[in-house]
């Protein structure tokens, strides 16, 4: 089953589903700051050139259905969110975190 966790055409991103298929923003943030930089960088390098295709694929679904996507698409969406979460770690400070306020101090409250 692990071969088909993502929609067809995104097999190259399959290895990252286990780590980065995270539905909630708060959990993605804590995953980022608690993950080794090398692991983050590997995911970034794999997905950064694929993001336009990821978004084009997901845009085939109406935005109203974002909470009811097929499982494979839902995982792909979470990978896209995770890409945004880790992007600055690679693009701005080459470390999991920017060394600002203790990550555990901020409460990220779900708005969905």
């Amino acid at each position: 089953m692990t071969d088909h966790q993502l929609p067809a055409g995104f097999a190259d991103l399959e290895p990252f589903v286990a780590d980065w298929n995270i539905p909630k923003r708060a959990d993605r943030f804590h995953k980022r700051v608690n993950t080794e930089y090398g692991v983050i960088k590997k995911f970034y390098d794999a997905i950064v050139t694929r993001m336009d295709a990821v978004i084009a694929h997901l845009n085939r679904y109406p935005v109203e259905e974002i909470g009811r996507l097929p499982e494979a698409e839902s995982r792909l969406l979470n990978l896209a969110f995770s890409f945004m979460q880790i992007s600055a770690a690679v693009e701005c400070w080459e470390a999991p975190d920017n060394g600002a306020l203790d990550p555990d101090k901020v409460e990220i409250i779900d708005c969905t």
């Binding site: 943030f29 997901l58 845009n59 935005v63 896209a80 969110f81 992007s87 600055a88 920017n98 600002a100």
Partner: peptide, 19 residues
């Protein structure tokens, strides 16, 4: 859905800047 993914970029960076 692309709008939602783009907005995620905003949320993530805003949090890091605010921190």
């Amino acid at each position: 859905i692309g709008d939602v993914i783009a907005a995620e970029n905003t949320h993530v960076h805003m949090l890091d800047v605010l921190r």
